[in-house]
């Protein structure tokens, strides 16, 4: 894995057995270039966001805008506030200062319509968090039926469509515990997609997986990106970041330290902290 990443970073395109991810390298970049980002509507807009846990400041004046069709990768050392930040975007966590506007709705303490936000924001967790008492199919049908109120037949059709999209339609009637980690994570992705969200948040989706399952999940995410899904991914998969991201954001101690296009970010990091982090993550 690390060898692959390094070779990509050094711009080598030799015969190293690359990840499936890198296969999509070319089309992805071309899509993002053709999108004309500046004009696209803003899906997430965070201005001066700060958050405290008691007296401990987790997030310090974060500014981040995610436009439609943009793919953003957030990385940084453990405990730097990456999860906290993206969990603020669907208000699983409350921020105390600043403004977060998601899909045109401002997130604040007294909001009654938090469901309006959440049904448009898909989230994929490190530990999948599938509902173990429901079949794979039911996991995918639940939200459309209970939140959007679509009919069972239609929910089933949508669910099967997205299970095919993540290439596990044959597991539809199994329970999550009968699936491998990679399969579970792909179901989790399909489950979020069934709500046809405006943006997908990924919180280290591959870091609980065995190495050989990482690529199947990354492949799924890459193909989502290719189809123009707006994505915010917390991940340490630098190969994925390089192939897919429009912007890479580096966080440390609750601040955005550096942000830039993947090429600049990996080949020419500006800050000492970023350099240190990259050297650590790529040399293990």
């Amino acid at each position: 894995m690390s060898v692959n990443n390094l070779s990509q970073l050094n711009g080598l395109t030799g015969n190293t057995p690359l990840h499936a991810v890198s296969a999509h390298h070319a089309p992805v970049t071309s899509i993002s270039e053709s999108l004309g980002q500046m004009s696209a509507e803003k899906i997430i807009e965070a201005t001066n966001v700060s958050k405290w846990y008691g007296s401990f400041r987790v997030l310090t004046e974060i500014n981040l805008t995610v436009r439609k069709g943009e793919r953003i990768v957030i990385c940084g050392p453990s405990g730097s506030g990456k999860s906290t930040l993206i969990r603020c975007f669907n208000r699983l966590e409350a921020h105390q200062q600043g403004d977060i506007i998601v899909n045109g709705i401002r997130l604040h303490d007294k909001m009654r319509n938090v469901t309006d936000v959440r049904k448009n924001v898909g989230m994929v967790f490190q530990h999948f968090n599938l509902f173990p008492h429901m079949t794979v199919l039911m996991n995918c049908m639940a939200a459309p039926m209970w939140i959007k109120g679509v009919s069972e037949a239609e929910a089933r059709k949508t669910a099967m469509r997205f299970l095919e999209r993540v290439r596990i339609p044959e597991q539809a009637n199994k329970y999550p515990a009968q699936l491998s980690g990679g399969q579970q994570q792909r179901v989790a992705i399909a489950r979020s997609l069934c709500m046809e969200p405006a943006v997908m948040l990924f919180d280290e989706p591959t870091s609980a997986l065995d190495p050989e399952m990482v690529s199947e999940v990354l492949e799924t995410m890459t193909s989502l990106a290719r189809d123009g899904m707006t994505m915010v991914c917390v991940t340490h998969e630098m190969g994925f970041a390089r192939a897919v991201a429009d912007r890479v954001i580096f966080m440390d101690s609750g601040k955005i330290v550096e942000e830039g296009a993947p090429n600049d970010f990996f080949t020419n990091p500006q800050h000492a902290r970023t350099k240190l982090f990259l050297s650590q993550i790529l040399s293990h």
């Binding site: 959440r118 989230m123 967790f125 530990h127 968090n129 599938l130 939200a143 489950r191």
Partner: peptide
């Protein structure tokens, strides 16, 4: 995580 998944889907 079950609460989080459920609430994050809008339940």
């Amino acid at each position: 995580g079950q609460w989080e998944a459920s609430r994050s889907m809008g339940f």
